[in-house]
Amino acid sequence: MRTTITAFLAALILPGLSMAAADEAKTITATHTLGTVELPVNPKRVAVLDYGSLETIGELGVTPALALPKKFLPPYLSKFSGEQYTDLGTVKEFNIETINAFKPDLIIISGRQQDYYQKLSSIAPVYLVDTLAKDQLGEAKKNIRLLGDVFGVPEKAAEAVKNIDEAVTRTKDKAQASGKKALVLLTNDGKVSAYGSGSRFGLVHDALGVAQADKNIKVGVHGQQVTYEYIAMLNPDIIFAVDRSVAIGRSAKNPNVLNNVLVNKTKAAKNGAIILLDPQVWYLSGGGIISLNKMISEVEAAFTDKK
């Protein structure tokens, strides 16, 4: 009789224990450019080498133990500079031994670290964020939703995506109604490169609907190097400029690289439409909830009447 009661109680209790164990072991299947990976749900320790993902984790209100590159940490992410967060170095020169000692449940990287994918995968599951995706907006929203699922807060992620979609629609309508054409430039120690549709700054044209001043810009990681004569001849209505030197903590050889006789002849210069974009957001991070909203708002501002 006692054996029967014990077996009956076990039948009631064990399923609950099994469910708890199953929840603990639960994973989410994610696909990225290097393959498919099983990501743990509610990871307790996360090494984040992608600033966009770092900011999204913060905005979703979850609090895993974090390891991250603190050198050149964008000012808007300064809350992650405290001693409670493990320092991994920089996004390009990070310390793998420190990551290993941190014992992460999950590692998040971007294209800057993808050459180390296999090595990092031997430490913990690795998710690769495609920061150079053709559909940058779609990729960013996918990553926000994924992190919402990983950390068990899909409703927060959905709300963030909804707000982003509304801002995109509003900006796109203004840009298209203006009829203005823009040129996106990266300045770096006196050198200038142009970026168009499908490039690392393609969000301006591909997602936000801003017309290109030059539709034939060569797509490449480093853009298409251009001259001041090219900019003057193109004569764009708007110039969006990202200063890489500032982003990585160096002073440019000429901090006013676009302030010269040729560029000052353009409609953009004459109408006060040379827009200096936040370099930490556009060059170092991007793709997270904070940076994506800031990027959209900076572009929208170029098409908003200033009265």
Score class of each variant (00 low, 15 high):
residue 225 Q to M: 12
residue 227 T to Y: 07
residue 176 Q to F: 06
residue 37 V to H: 02
residue 298 E to P: 01
residue 51 Y to G: 05
residue 144 I to C: 09
residue 289 I to Q: 09
residue 189 D to H: 15
residue 70 K to P: 03
residue 61 G to W: 06
residue 292 L to K: 11
residue 120 L to H: 00
residue 277 L to C: 05
residue 63 T to W: 01
residue 64 P to E: 04
residue 196 G to Y: 00
residue 56 T to Y: 09
residue 197 S to Q: 11
residue 167 A to L: 15
residue 249 G to Q: 10
residue 177 A to E: 11
residue 249 G to L: 12
residue 141 K to A: 11
residue 43 P to W: 00
residue 289 I to V: 14
residue 138 G to V: 02
residue 50 D to R: 06
residue 181 K to R: 13
residue 263 V to H: 05
residue 274 I to K: 03
residue 17 L to Y: 08
residue 178 S to R: 05
residue 74 P to N: 05
residue 283 Y to Q: 08
residue 275 I to R: 07
residue 305 D to M: 13
residue 112 R to Q: 08
residue 169 T to D: 15
residue 183 L to A: 00
residue 46 V to L: 02
residue 299 V to M: 01
residue 94 F to I: 07
residue 146 L to S: 07
residue 149 D to E: 15
residue 305 D to Y: 13
residue 122 S to I: 09
residue 90 T to G: 12
residue 289 I to F: 10
residue 289 I to T: 13
residue 180 K to C: 01
residue 52 G to C: 02
residue 270 K to P: 06
residue 206 D to Y: 09
residue 32 H to K: 07
residue 115 D to I: 09
residue 68 L to N: 04
residue 85 Y to G: 01
residue 65 A to P: 10
residue 57 I to P: 01
residue 138 G to Y: 07
residue 111 G to D: 02
residue 72 F to M: 15
residue 134 K to P: 13
residue 44 K to G: 11
residue 231 I to F: 05
residue 84 Q to E: 15
residue 291 S to L: 05
residue 137 L to N: 05
residue 132 L to Y: 15
residue 250 R to F: 14
residue 281 V to N: 12
residue 15 P to C: 06
residue 8 F to H: 11
residue 84 Q to Y: 04
residue 38 E to N: 13
residue 96 I to K: 11
residue 131 T to S: 13
residue 294 K to C: 00
residue 107 I to T: 01
residue 68 L to H: 05
residue 287 G to C: 00
residue 232 A to T: 10
residue 195 Y to A: 00
residue 78 S to I: 08
residue 92 K to S: 13
residue 23 D to L: 13
residue 57 I to L: 03
residue 287 G to D: 00
residue 62 V to K: 01
residue 169 T to S: 15
residue 166 E to A: 15
residue 242 V to M: 08
residue 305 D to P: 13
residue 48 V to E: 00
residue 123 I to A: 06
residue 270 K to M: 10
residue 138 G to P: 11
residue 29 T to S: 14
residue 203 L to Q: 00
residue 47 A to S: 13
residue 106 L to N: 05
residue 14 L to I: 14
residue 23 D to A: 14
residue 169 T to C: 10
residue 171 T to P: 07
residue 129 V to G: 00
residue 14 L to C: 07
residue 269 A to D: 03
residue 170 R to I: 09
residue 186 L to K: 13
residue 258 L to C: 01
residue 34 L to S: 08
residue 263 V to K: 00
residue 191 K to S: 15
residue 13 I to S: 02
residue 244 R to S: 03
residue 202 G to H: 04
residue 245 S to V: 06
residue 272 G to W: 04
residue 79 K to E: 14
residue 1 M to F: 12
residue 189 D to G: 13
residue 230 Y to C: 08
residue 95 N to L: 02
residue 49 L to T: 02
residue 71 K to S: 14
residue 58 G to K: 07
residue 30 A to I: 02
residue 42 N to Q: 11
residue 235 N to K: 09
residue 277 L to D: 02
